[in-house]
Design a protein around this nucleic acid. Structure first.
Length: 294
DNA sequence: AAGAACTCCTGTTGGC
DNA sequence: TGCCAACAGGAGTTCT
């Protein structure tokens, strides 16, 4: 589910309860998520103090005092629920059915030294957790092939043109490729392409001029990738289905979608009177306006 | 060897 | 109301 803005929102929500606290008890309720948990997962975390909580692409990176890093990916449906003693006190018998239904997918429970409890819930189990040595984190197989962070200076028109220039694939597929730009997903690729007035069906190679310079489209695209991600983070991410930030706050960027999920509705670009279409690329929906996105 | 198709899993939604 | 197919924010693996 979560793309970069949602993961960043989760990171901010967890930072306050995690950093400087210790894992007092870790309850791993099944042997695997998408992949098996690391060997002795709970034992390796228990007693460790958390030094910092970072994000790389769609990964959360929990730096531990002992030199290991807990790497977590939320997949499509992963979420964290923070609870503190005394908060959300429920009357006996109230909401028991709903609580039980949700608990079915509570796969890991972290009990912290500050009394906060953080529960990882993931219905589809496409998420996963791994442990890595902090000294070699960059070369860990999950990190090694990631492309640039879209909100850093590393994502420039020159970089994007260089990485896409030789590609035969579509612009949509190139932007979803985490080895080129790390952290974009289906929603924000659709939205960034619309803001940049580029069709998802266009070829990635067109971002590069014959001279090797970035095209004007490439310059617009880089600018709009950054702006859509910044706007979404500002809004606390997007809430679809029942996703929410760890403290239960709902993001509201979904109200700002110009194309995603808007098939058949009017294009919101000023002066454009096109109609949003949905096509399938690589088995996934692309929403775009055939009139203003070329 | 790039690019597309397939795969994992469960829940929700929309059409009949 | 019920049933069933289509679809969902990801990405590693397997094909062509």
């Amino acid at each position: 589910m979560p793309e970069l803005p949602e993961v960043e929102t989760v990171r901010r929500g967890l930072e306050g309860v995690l950093v400087d606290a210790r894992f007092e008890r870790v309850e791993q309720r099944r042997p695997d998520l998408r992949f098996p948990f690391p060997e002795r997962f709970a034992q390796r975390l228990t007693g460790q103090r958390i030094v910092s909580l970072a994000r790389r692409a769609k990964y959360l990176l929990v730096h531990l005092e002992g030199g290991e890093v807990l790497i977590m990916h939320l997949g499509m449906s992963g979420r964290f629920i923070i609870s503190r003693p005394g908060a959300n006190a429920q009357k006996p018998g109230e909401f028991l059915h709903e609580a039980g239904d949700q608990e079915r997918h509570d796969h890991v429970v972290f009990v912290m030294s500050n009394r906060a409890t953080i529960t990882y819930n993931d219905a589809r189990r496409f998420g996963f957790m791994a442990l890595a040595d902090a000294r070699t984190l960059e070369s860990h197989k999950l990190m090694a092939n990631l492309g640039v962070e879209p909100l850093s200076e590393d994502l420039s028109p020159e970089y994007l043109a260089a990485r896409c220039g030789c590609k035969k694939t579509s612009l949509k597929a190139a932007l979803l490729d985490q080895r080129i730009v790390a952290g974009l997903g289906n929603i924000y690729v659709c939205e960034a392409l619309h803001r940049a007035r580029l069709s998802p069906r266009g070829s990635a190679g067109k971002l590069t001029l014959r001279s090797g310079e970035p095209s004007t489209g490439a310059r617009r695209l880089v600018e709009q990738i950054k702006s859509v991600l910044e706007d979404a983070i500002e809004a606390g991410g997007s809430t679809l289905k029942d996703y929410h930030a760890p403290e239960g706050d709902l993001g509201y960027f979904q109200h700002s979608f110009a194309v995603y999920g808007r098939e058949g509705l009017e294009c919101l670009a000023p002066g454009c009177e096109g109609t949003i279409r949905r096509i399938v690329q690589g088995g996934r929906s692309s929403f775009y306006c055939p009139r203003c996105q070329r």
